[in-house]
C-alpha cells in the first residue's frame, strides 16, 4: 500500500498537539516468554537457543512475514516484540506515517550480527549479513513492516537507562508532529535476549498509565 507523505506540520499551530502522553500497551519478550500488557501470550516448554526460540515464537504468534527469516536475531526479536505490541491496534488508521516514531536502546548494539558477519569475511563477505551490523536496522525493519516514517533513534547504554530515555522520548513527544512512539529496550547477544517495548500515544482511550518514569518501572522492572 502507499502512504501519505504530506507532512504533519502546520505552521499556524502553536501549542496544538502538545499534551499528555500515555502508555497504551507494552510487550515483553524474555526468558522464553512472550507477554502482552502483562498477560502471558506464549512460553516455550523448554529452554532452547535464541535462533530456535525466535522461530518458535514467530510460529506461535501466527505471523506470516517471510522477510522475517532473512533477518538477524536482533531484528527478529524487534519484529516479534513490535508485532506483539501492535496486535489489535490501528496506528496507521489513527496517525499519519510521519507522526509515528521508533526509539530503542540496548547494550550490545549489533555485536551479535557483527560477530556472525566477521566470521564469514575470510571466505566471502556477505552484503545480506553486513547490513545487519548496525543496530538501527531493526528500526528500519519495523518501519518497513508497518509503514512508519517518523523519527528514529538508537541509543547504546550498558543498562536500560529509563530516566534518560523517558525524558528524551517525553521531549520528542512534545513536538506536535509526533503523536505515537514505539519505545523501549531491545537487547540481544548470543543466547541472551530481552525486549521490553512500550506503545506511547497522545490519543488514548485508556488513560490508566500516563507515560511516567514510575509507570515504566511499574510495568517493566
Amino acid at each position: 500500500m502507499t502512504h501519505s507523505v504530506n507532512i504533519a506540520t502546520d505552521p499556524l499551530s502553536s501549542g496544538e498537539g502538545r499534551g499528555e502522553v500515555f502508555i497504551t500497551g507494552y510487550s515483553i519478550i524474555s526468558n522464553g516468554g512472550v507477554e502482552k500488557d502483562g498477560h502471558l501470550v506464549w512460553k516455550e516448554p523448554s529452554a532452547q537457543h535464541t535462533d530456535n526460540f525466535l522461530v518458535s515464537a514467530y510460529r506461535q504468534m501466527g505471523l506470516s512475514y517471510p522477510k522475517f527469516f532473512k533477518m538477524d536475531n536482533l531484528s527478529k526479536l524487534g519484529l516479534l516484540a513490535s508485532e506483539n505490541l501492535l496486535s489489535g491496534t490501528d496506528l496507521k488508521g489513527k496517525y499519519k506515517p510521519d507522526e509515528i516514531s521508533v526509539v530503542f536502546a540496548n547494550a550490545s548494539s549489533s555485536l551479535d550480527a557483527d560477530q556472525k558477519y566477521f566470521d564469514t569475511i575470510k571466505d566471502i563477505a556477505s552484503p545480506a549479513l553486513f547490513v545487519y551490523t548496525l543496530p538501527n536496522i531493526v528500526i528500519g525493519e519495523i518501519c518497513i513492516k508497518n509503514g512508519f516514517k517518523g523519527e528514529n533513534a538508537f541509543f547504546v547504554f550498558d543498562k536500560f537507562e529509563a530516566k534518560f530515555l523517558h525524558q528524551y522520548v517525553q521531549t520528542l513527544m512534545q513536538q506536535n508532529t509526533n503523536k505515537a512512539c514505539i519505545f523501549g529496550w531491545l537487547e540481544l547477544i548470543g543466547d541472551s535476549y530481552e525486549a521490553a517495548l512500550f506503545l506511547l500515544e497522545k490519543e488514548a482511550a485508556d488513560k490508566t498509565n500516563p507515560f511516567t518514569l514510575e509507570n515504566i518501572y511499574k510495568l517493566y522492572s
Partner: peptide, 16 residues
C-alpha cells in the same frame, strides 16, 4: 533538526 524513515528498504534509499 529532524529525522525520518523511508519505510522502504534497509539497504537502499527511497526512490522518491
Amino acid at each position: 533538526g529532524s529525522v525520518s524513515n523511508d519505510a522502504n528498504h534497509i539497504s537502499g534509499p527511497s526512490r522518491t
